[in-house]
Design a protein around this nucleic acid. Sequence first.
DNA 1: CCTCTTCGTTCACGTAGCGTTCACGAAAGG
DNA 2: CCTTTCGTGAACGCTACGTGAACGAAGAGG
Lengths: 223, 223
Amino acid sequence: MLTAKQRALLLFIDRRLREVGVPPSFEEMREALGLRSKSGVHRLVEALVERGFLRRLPHRARALEVLRRPGEPAGMASPAEVVSLGARRARGGVRAARAVVVPFVGRIAAGRPLEAVEDRETLEVPAFLLGPGEHFALQVVGDSMVEAGILDGDFALVRRTEEARPGDIVVALIDGCETTLKYFHRERGMIRLDPANPAYAPQLYLPSRVRIQGRLAGLLRRY
Amino acid sequence: MLTAKQRALLLFIDRRLREVGVPPSFEEMREALGLRSKSGVHRLVEALVERGFLRRLPHRARALEVLRRPGEPAGMASPAEVVSLGARRARGGVRAARAVVVPFVGRIAAGRPLEAVEDRETLEVPAFLLGPGEHFALQVVGDSMVEAGILDGDFALVRRTEEARPGDIVVALIDGCETTLKYFHRERGMIRLDPANPAYAPQLYLPSRVRIQGRLAGLLRRY
DNA sequence: CCTCTTCGTTCACGTAGCGTTCACGAAAGG
DNA sequence: CCTTTCGTGAACGCTACGTGAACGAAGAGG
């Protein structure tokens, strides 16, 4: 499975990890193997990764990890295999990606329109929580929806849309400056936003003051 | 996997967590590492999160958690983490999103022990919902926990453990034949399982009749 | 509700260390 | 003989790390 050099390098890395705790740099490995160029080390490391003995983060300093020592049996799900499987699946799509990345646009009820929040952060969510369309995520602040099972700190997954049907839970932008999560209803030509908490009152708005930004599609919570 | 500095910081955090119980602030970490600026600490923490050793809540004070100590084998999180997406960070700094695959073991409160359920199905969930350890997922049936914001049909993410502290929401196997999700409490040598619904009554059991199967770690809901 | 304090976040700048790549050459082995 | 494997050296660009200041968010207390 391994050439003499590959084996020597693997043992050296493993020993360093055990004795010092920090993986060696390419320069140090070069010296330990008695080489005069780092590129040889580079190829050896690649070979060890390919064979499932090492794991590494490319372009990161000393980001090496020994997965398996020479002589040890290969684990069931060696990361190398998992990676290649994942890569294949992602490319071809036997089973379409089961996780979707959505932008995380901040916290709601912060008295600030969502547009103002940078959406650099992202959240990876299981695809089965989302329907078709474009989604974003935000964190719920406050307890105005507790009776709907939406608690302070929960992450709401929202499908971006401007339409809402009565009874939907929507993200609404009011007067262009405040964003809330509420039940959506219509009443005599007005829009009524109902909290799910008896401590708060329903609010009536002229349709012109309210802009629907999305419809609640999923929820994440951590304990 | 870790540079000397990264490793030193991780060990410091871990020690503080064990000895004091409270994670250090950035200022304290700065001092412990002999630095003069907190921003260095910030980068180190980011690196540790990226490598899967730490978990944290951004913008929260002392919200740090050690997922893995240097030298410990990579947990469930690592293979999936690599699959998730090559997630190269962009200029501004995007939080690396990771996903973990957990077994989906069926529906709870079905009057059937969890062991009896095949666990062929899996669920892919965002890693940030989970802590360290092994997890599984199940679907909640019934409304006995509505007041805790857990609704019929929600997916519960459960950390497999046999220990529980009073106030935890646990998955409990009763008499080896029935599984429920309830608040865990002790009362005069007995175990009390509290629902979060006034329509149901707390239940008292001899400890010998109850086996804790896990602690609620996260929640997923679909609308 | 407001203010104050603590704490985390971000940016810009600088330095040193580190990984990557490529072209070239030598040996090994079928 | 040709293909692989291994070694070399240098150039390039990214990464890790240190610093200091300004900013912003969260929590505590009035």
